[in-house]
Amino acid sequence: MILFTFPGQGAQRPGMLHSLPDHPAVARTLDETFDALRDDPLTLDTAKALESTVAVQLCLLVAGVAMARFFVAHKVGPHMVAGLSIGSYPAAVIAGALEYADAVRLVARRGQLMESAYPHGYGMAAIVGLDRYQLEPLIARVHTPAAPVYLANLNANRQLVIAGADGPMRLVMRLALGQGATRVERLAVSVPSHCELFDSAAVEMRAAFAGVTVHRPQSTYLSSGIARALFEPGIIADDLANNMARQVHWFETARLAWERGARLALEMPSGSVLTNLTAPVFADGQAFCCDNNRIDTLLALLSREQAQATH
Rank of each mutant, 00 (worst) to 15 (best):
S85D: 05
W258V: 00
G211F: 06
N242R: 15
A300Y: 10
A49I: 10
S190T: 11
P14L: 10
S223V: 12
L256M: 05
L44S: 09
L84I: 05
A95I: 10
E115M: 06
P168W: 03
G123F: 12
R255S: 05
S88K: 00
H18G: 14
N292K: 08
R294G: 15
A229N: 05
M173A: 15
A66H: 06
V107S: 13
S219L: 06
S52M: 12
A156D: 14
L160D: 05
A227D: 03
D296R: 14
T33E: 01
A73Q: 03
L230M: 12
Q159R: 12
L44R: 04
E99D: 15
S303M: 05
R183P: 07
A11V: 09
R170A: 15
Q218A: 12
F209V: 07
T144Q: 03
M1Q: 10
G211P: 13
V128C: 01
Q112K: 14
Q57A: 10
H249L: 14
L274T: 08
S272K: 14
E185W: 04
V104R: 07
L84H: 15
L17H: 09
P24D: 04
A287C: 03
R216V: 13
L17Q: 01
E305S: 00
D39S: 15
L240V: 02
L50H: 09
N157F: 07
T220K: 07
P192M: 04
L130S: 02
T5M: 13
L177S: 08
Q12D: 11
V172L: 03
L37N: 11
A108M: 14
H120N: 13
L154P: 11
A140T: 08
V56S: 07
